[in-house]
């Protein structure tokens, strides 16, 4: 177990390093010049001379490798530099936004898990009957509707028509519900199929015949015998979906006028604000890697066969 964790941690560090290189390279090679934008922001005319002056000011004239080393050195200490656009400390800006996005993703993950389990079980309990078809239809609908459209529908239904929930900004716990639901729709749809198909496969396994021969009923077999068997698969799929939620957050946060990492990232991209974009990308990637690590550990805990290989 310890061996496994230390090995995976080492892998994760290597992965993080490679991710930082990719982050930096991608951002640096993106078209557009932030110095021009800064010059314009200051109300000056972006003459080549003035742009050069700005570039020197923010260190854009240094060699790429040095810029990378400087940036990485600061980043590992938690210092993501100063935003070109606002002149504020990126790390300070991010601290609160990370909390917001974190709660957003965590809540959506819980909702997606509950919905997908409910839909999946519904389908597995009455395979190929009406509940299964409804569950399948909902999954198809949820998986094929774009998130921005889902968000707009949610606002239209719950805020405009029924006036139950606030549509933007942060105004008490009720404000979380719509963004949570909006982000949860796609992963819930995908995961419900994982549950449904996993349960069906488990229900045709020979050990289910044994369970039936023991006199267990269908419900008991589904929950006691089949569910533990799909847990590792489910956790794996959930991990992927939670990782992808960062991408959804970029769309959903501006939609609900939320100040999260996704919203910050988008603003950074618009302004070629390297410092902000790099910081957000690195946070997203770290999140992805950490989620994967947690998933691997959780699978280890839920599947005794894999556990054995590492003990």
């Amino acid at each position: 177990m310890i061996h496994f964790i230390s090995k995976r941690l080492k892998h994760s560090l290597v992965l993080l390093f490679m991710a930082s290189v990719v982050c930096f390279t991608l951002v640096v090679s993106a078209p557009g010049n932030v110095a021009v934008l800064i010059a314009e922001l200051r109300g000056a005319v972006a003459t080549p001379g003035y742009v050069e002056q700005v570039e020197e000011e923010i260190g854009l004239n240094k060699p790429l490798l040095m810029r990378y080393v400087d940036w990485l050195g600061d980043a590992v200490r938690g210092d993501f530099g100063i935003s070109y656009r606002t002149g504020q400390d990126v790390s300070a800006d991010l601290a609160n936004r990370m909390l917001v996005t974190g709660i957003l993703i965590a809540g959506s993950a819980v909702i997606a898990t509950l919905i997908s389990l409910a839909l999946g079980f519904l389908g597995a309990f009455w395979p190929y009957k009406l509940p299964d078809r409804v569950s399948r239809g909902l999954a198809l609908l949820g998986a094929s509707t774009p998130t921005f459209f889902v968000g707009a529908l949610m606002i239209y239904a719950f805020s405009v028509t029924f006036q139950l929930l606030p549509s933007f900004g942060f105004d008490g716990p009720k404000s979380w519900i719509l963004p949570w639901l909006t982000i949860a729709v796609l992963p819930a749809a995908v995961l419900s199929r994982v549950v449904r198909v996993g349960l069906e496969e488990a229900m045709t396994s020979p050990f289910v015949l044994t369970a039936k021969s023991k006199g267990l009923g269908r419900t008991a077999i589904l929950f006691r015998e089949a569910l533990p068997n799909i847990t590792p698969i489910f956790i794996n799929a959930l991990g992927t979906q939670v990782g992808l939620m960062t991408a959804t957050a970029i769309i959903v946060e501006p939609l609900f006028a939320w100040q999260g990492v996704g919203d910050y990232f988008l603003a950074g991209v618009r302004f070629r604000d390297f410092m902000v974009v790099q910081a957000c990308l690195l946070i997203f990637l770290t999140f992805f890697i950490v989620v994967n690590l947690i998933v691997d550990l959780a699978v280890l805990l839920t599947d005794p066969r894999i556990r054995r290989q590492w003990s």
Partner: peptide, 18 residues
Amino acid sequence: GKSVGFIFQDPMSALNPV
């Protein structure tokens, strides 16, 4: 299970692995 007990051919797959 109560009145009739069953024993199956392949013990490798007849038990729940987890």
